[in-house]
Design a protein around this nucleic acid. Structure first.
Length: 255
DNA sequence: CGGCATGTTTCGCC
DNA sequence: AGGCGAAACATGCC
């Protein structure tokens, strides 16, 4: 998905439908139970909530989670808050619509070529960690509480049970600005390091949000795909896999 | 054609 | 028991 920043944009766009009555729902059977979702017809959308990468429409009946996986996009009243996802297809086909919801005064659809989107009634978010847009101090608390973990710091940051909403690009970007090697073990980082990292996550999230999304960082998709040099110090950028995810970092200033 | 992609869940192995 | 990495999921693009 869309990382947390993109989910925030989706949630913001969806608020346009608050107060509207749902009149129809069509869903790809692999992405959601059409019989269950049909129970939403006639309900009024009374709010939108987001936690991490998860977005849900609140109604006067059930709540529906819209989960976008890697390539899901939300289109509200024909307008997409994100025109085209990085690493997603350049074009859009209606056959990729996995959910189409009509209301009395507008519509919403989720378009996902890869078909990993999921639509769930009354989702349980209780296992998610604190939201990535929480105050830096709270993020620091969450990280420091996990110092016993044996995994790398990057793996920890990607764990949605610890901090919800951080994705691969935002994690790389935050570690880049923190000067921390993504391979370092959690235990090797002290409280000061973790609080500094938390602060960098906050600043980076705010900065990338204002610039338009997770792909607008210093480690842009172009830099990620090319074997480039570090824009800060000119040292070669490293490209490795951590927990199965492509990881870009500077061989010099990230230690 | 092979490999890779802003992600989560499941499986098997310590 | 619990945590970790790899595989699975499904599809488009370079």
């Amino acid at each position: 998905m869309p990382e947390g920043l993109e989910a925030a944009l989706y949630a913001s766009a969806a608020t346009e439908l608050v107060g509207h009555q749902i009149t129809s729902i069509e869903v790809d059977d692999r992405c959601g139970d059409s019989n269950v979702l049909a129970s939403l017809v006639g309900r009024h959308i009374c709010g939108v909530k987001r936690h991490g990468k998860r977005v849900a429409l609140e109604t006067d009946g059930a709540h529906v989670e819209l989960y976008f996986a890697m390539t899901g996009r939300l289109i509200v009243n024909g307008i997409a808050p994100i025109a085209a996802l990085e690493y997603g297809p350049a074009t859009e086909r209606r056959e990729w619509d996995r959910l189409v919801m009509g209301t009395d005064r507008g519509s919403l659809r989720v378009n996902d070529p890869r078909r990993w989107a999921r639509f769930t009634i009354d989702p349980d978010w209780s296992n998610l960690g604190i939201d990535f847009m929480s105050p830096a101090q709270a993020l620091g608390d969450a990280l420091r509480a996990q110092r016993h973990r044996r995994c790398s710091i990057k793996t920890l940051l990607l764990d949605q049970h610890v901090i919800a909403g951080l994705g691969n690009m935002l994690v790389d970007e935050s570690l880049f600005h923190s000067g921390i090697d993504p391979r370092r073990s959690c235990a090797s980082l002290g409280s000061v390091d973790l609080d500094g990292l938390a602060e960098n996550i906050s600043v980076t999230a705010t900065e990338l949000e204002s610039r338009g999304g997770s792909h607008t960082g210093t480690l842009s998709p172009d830099l990620r795909s090319a074997m480039a040099v570090c824009p800060l110090d000119g040292a070669p950028l490293q490209r490795i896999k951590i927990s199965g995810r492509t990881t870009i970092f500077c061989s010099q200033h990230q230690q």
